[in-house]
C-alpha cells in the first residue's frame, strides 16, 4: 500500500446531515488512500447509505466537507461527482430495467464518449466511431463480468445475482477512480458471495481501483477489507483493521442482540 506522503484520494471531514430536525449522520470522518479497499459497516439504520448518498451528491450534506483528490465535491450534483471519478451501485438495484444488458453498460460510457449532439443527428463519422468504441468497450466489460452471452437480454429478466454484477459493470463503465458498492452481496447465496469477493479483488487489480463498500455480510467484509469504519446511530464508533474491529467493545455493543456475522438478506 502506498499511503505515506501521498494525499488521500478521499477525505471526509466532520460530515453531517439533518432531515427536518433529525440528525441522520454527524461528525463523520473518513480518509481513503489510493488503492485501498475500505468497509463501512453498522447496524440497520445507522446511516451508511446516507453517507453514500452524500458522497455521490444525491443528498447535500448540511455540515462538513468532502474532498476528492484534494478538491471540494460537496454541493455538486451527482452527475458532476461521477465525472470527477466516483461511481456507485445501489442497495436496491437500480438498473435500467427495460433496457438490454449491453445498453445498461453503454450508458455507463456516456461521459467518456465525446461526440456532439449534431454529429449524432447528422450521422457524422464521429458518431459512428464513438458508437463502435462504446459498443466494443461495453462488450469487453461484459466478458470480464461473464455476462457477454446475455448482452441482448432485458436487464430485469436477469437473475438477482447477475443483476448485481451488471450494476457493478455499469458503475465501472463510467470510469471511476473510487467505486462505492452498497451491499453488493445482499440477497446472494454463499457461492455467489464467494464469486463476488473474487470479482471485487480482480477488478480492483485490473482497473487500479479504490473501493468503499457497505456490507452486512461480515464474512465478506472481514475477508477482503483492509480497514473498516463502523457507524452507529449516525456516529462513527470505531475504525481500524478487521482484527481490531472484531474485538472492539463499542462495536460489540452496537451489534448486541445482533450476532456479528449474521447474514442480513
Amino acid at each position: 500500500m502506498k499511503t505515506s506522503g501521498l494525499k488521500p484520494l478521499l477525505q471526509v471531514n466532520q460530515l453531517g446531515i439533518q432531515f427536518g430536525g433529525l440528525k441522520a449522520v454527524s461528525e463523520f470522518n473518513l480518509q481513503i488512500n489510493k488503492g485501498e479497499l475500505i468497509g463501512l459497516i453498522g447496524p440497520n439504520g445507522a446511516g451508511k447509505t446516507t453517507v453514500f448518498n452524500m458522497l455521490t451528491g444525491v443528498y447535500e450534506p448540511t455540515e462538513g466537507d468532502i474532498l476528492f483528490e484534494g478538491k471540494k465535491i460537496h454541493g455538486l450534483p451527482p452527475y458532476k461527482i461521477t465525472r470527477r471519478g466516483i461511481s456507485r451501485t445501489f442497495q436496491n438495484i437500480r438498473l435500467f430495467a427495460e433496457l438490454s444488458v449491453l445498453d445498461n453498460v453503454r450508458i455507463g460510457y456516456h461521459t467518456i464518449a465525446k461526440n456532439s449532439l449534431l454529429s449524432s443527428i447528422f450521422r457524422l463519422p464521429a458518431h459512428f466511431s464513438n458508437e463502435k468504441e462504446m459498443r466494443d468497450k461495453a462488450i469487453e466489460f461484459l466478458k470480464i463480468f461473464n455476462l457477454e452471452h446475455l448482452k441482448d437480454e432485458t436487464a430485469k429478466n436477469l437473475p438477482y445475482g447477475m443483476q448485481r454484477r451488471l450494476e457493478i459493470a455499469r458503475a465501472l463503465a463510467a470510469g471511476p477512480k473510487l467505486l462505492l458498492l452498497d451491499e453488493p452481496a445482499a440477497g446472494m447465496n454463499p457461492k455467489e458471495t464467494a464469486e463476488l469477493m473474487d470479482l471485487i479483488a480482480f477488478i480492483r487489480e485490473e482497473f487500479d481501483l479504490t473501493i468503499l463498500l457497505i456490507e452486512h455480510d461480515m464474512k465478506l467484509v472481514m475477508g477482503i477489507c483492509e480497514r473498516i469504519s463502523v457507524l452507529d446511530h449516525g456516529l462513527l464508533i470505531a475504525e481500524g483493521s478487521p482484527e481490531e474491529i472484531r474485538n472492539h467493545p463499542k462495536v460489540i455493543e452496537a451489534y448486541l442482540g445482533e450476532e456479528v456475522g449474521e447474514n442480513h438478506a
Binding site: Y79, T82, R94, T111
Partner: peptide, 9 residues
Amino acid sequence: IAADSMGIN
C-alpha cells in the same frame, strides 16, 4: 437517479 449517478446531466 441511476442515470444521474452514471454521469448523465
